[in-house]
Design a protein around this nucleic acid. Structure first.
Lengths: 338, 338
DNA sequence: TCTATTTTCGATAACGTTCTCGCTACTATT
DNA sequence: AATAGTAGCGAGAACGTTATCGAAAATAGA
């Protein structure tokens, strides 16, 4: 591996000046004349010089790298968040190192524990659906490394967070179902410990109570459409089956539609379904799925913005940012011609 | 930013031994007694030591970082490939730096040109749908940096490539349509310059000719379902409209189904549709979309494996790997009760 | 017991960059 | 014309780690 790139020294030598001057010229700082700067810059591009980030990272404390730790990227929400992160980071000159936990606590702790603290400036994280112990993240914070959580946040530890308004979104979804005349509204949702699960559940409950209704079944399981089918099985095996389903996300909403369709139950007219996310698939399935749109891209951008502010200013105060959602009405909650 | 982590020096000092010994003990090399190694390791974990990758990267030439350059990640194929890459890389101790080109040549060149060659060991790339000039990638290769292309490959330059068998996949898709009795088969596809577009087109054409058929329309455009609708408009405005559509990917296949459904044309019975990818949405749309499954995850794993081999052995020969596809038959090509 | 070999460790130079200091040469001030 | 100030640059240390070389201590062989 005899990789050998042109360094600042090479430029200095061929130009007959000192490395310090080249270094200064490269960063267009004061203390260097316009002519020498031009000379250096020309020679640099001529020799195809690229800065060695290891060296700069070693001498300065900032490395311009951020770690993104996320359960997976094979769904619309996460991949869109990452896109937002990546674009903002690139614009600000930061590199994104991607870590996938595969929604496993074991991998998450392993990844966090093995992070080279000194070669990243900060961490952007979305925890596993089972993470209930945040010790590994606390270690990062103790080491003075900025951490920002998005979507699934670690409530107890004092870091900045960026989330969609899960509570309000759930309220508007439930409100919409009630408005359309559904009365026996059930909720199929995710793991019980997650903040977003709790908030959506609370929004659902509060809205029901506000209208003098009570829940017609609440089932916790995973986030996949397959698990939604099991949830539906449970709900519809009781004698007082629901006439509407509020799903914690679109994947489960889609699972619910598929299950209903298979049973010959008319989605919308007989049983209404609403999801959460605004996954592109929700437009494509038939009947199309009403949902609460999450600002995934903006969450990515915003959380990256907050992280970089923490990195650049140690005194930047903790932020708890909540971005608005938007109710999107489609066919799966259409009833009586509406 | 007074970040300060425990270093090898700190360990050496508190233990009263030299840094060299600590360094050796840390890498469990020879030349160090079992007792001192244990002593060092214990102290390291006690002091929460994490290696400084900038320093190691500086002294050794390998940085254990690879750059992944990809148009986007908000679709099933790409996000699955990335997952494969990431998991393989993590297992081998490599970090993945993610770059999204947003399918723009301008961003791609900018990203490649600004890559810090000395702080990565290799590049894994999937080119833009418009990239026709590979000079920026050639510069990397000249600098002796291993580059592996996947999915969308730069044909002209001599690097390893990992792709699915686009030609054979297209053949089997077309073969399937013919077998089902469709005779006026059209192809809606992507940008004309891309290798995968060419190969799928060729497989389609060869199979038609083999059966004495000729193409009933070939439309090139982008890869989205919206663009598919325009393609369909063109195809069905001619007097001899096709009775089957081979779409270059599932998104366009789905666009075709949506278009047909809207027109009241029965998908399957009247007009067959087959896609390429096996996006999860293809199962969910109704009628469900027949398709050619791509081994996206394996492509990610394999391309990462090849890249790492190139990194670790400079003499590792150029590989051109083609992974098999699989025909998946669903409702969109069902005809007459089949 | 003395030499020869091995084992274990320490000193020191590198890697490529930035930073601090100091030196020179020039300009401005009086 | 003498001094003060400033612009521009160079020398050298530092960042945290690994690699090379050699020295000391322990062991083996005679």
């Amino acid at each position: 591996m005899p990789k050998r790139f042109t360094t600042i020294k090479d430029i200095a030598k061929t130009l007959g000046i000192s490395v310090a001057t080249v270094s200064r010229a490269m960063r267009d700082t004061y203390d260097v004349s316009a002519e020498t700067r031009k000379m250096v810059l020309d020679m640099a591009s001529k020799m195809n010089y690229r800065p060695n980030f290891n060296a700069t990272g070693l001498v300065k404390s900032d490395t311009h790298k951020i770690a993104v730790i996320i359960p997976s990227i094979t769904n619309f929400y996460f991949s869109t968040v990452i896109t937002g992160i990546q674009e903002y980071a690139l614009e600000k000159g930061y590199q994104v190192i991607l870590y996938l936990t595969n929604d496993s606590v074991h991998w998450e702790t392993k990844i966090v524990r093995e992070l080279s603290l000194s070669s990243i400036d900060g961490v952007l994280a979305c925890i596993t659906s089972q993470t209930d112990d945040f010790k590994h993240f606390e270690e990062l914070i103790e080491a003075d490394l900025p951490v920002v959580f998005f979507d699934r946040v670690a409530g107890s530890i004092g870091t900045s967070t960026v989330v969609q308004d899960d509570y309000a979104g759930a309220c508007s979804a439930t409100e919409h179902l009630i408005e359309r005349g559904y009365t026996r509204i059930a909720h199929i949702t995710g793991p019980i410990g997650l903040s977003l699960t709790k908030n959506r559940l609370q929004g659902y409950l509060d809205t029901l109570y506000k209208h003098g209704l009570s829940p017609s079944g609440i089932v916790h399981s995973g986030f996949s459409d397959e698990e939604a089918k099991n949830d539906m099985e449970k709900l519809f095996s009781t004698k007082n089956a629901p006439d509407a389903i509020f799903a914690v996300n679109d994947r489960k909403g889609i699972g619910a539609i598929l299950w209903l369709r298979k049973r010959g139950i008319k989605v919308g007219d007989e049983v209404g379904v609403i999801g959460f996310t605004n996954d592109p698939t929700s437009k494509i399935i038939s009947p199309s799925l009403s949902t609460v749109a999450e600002p995934a891209y903006e969450i990515g951008q915003k959380s990256c913005e907050v992280l970089i502010k923490h990195i650049q200013k140690n005194t930047f105060p903790i932020q708890e940012i909540t971005l608005p959602t938007e109710l999107i009405i489609r066919e799966s909650t259409a009833r009586g011609g509406k």
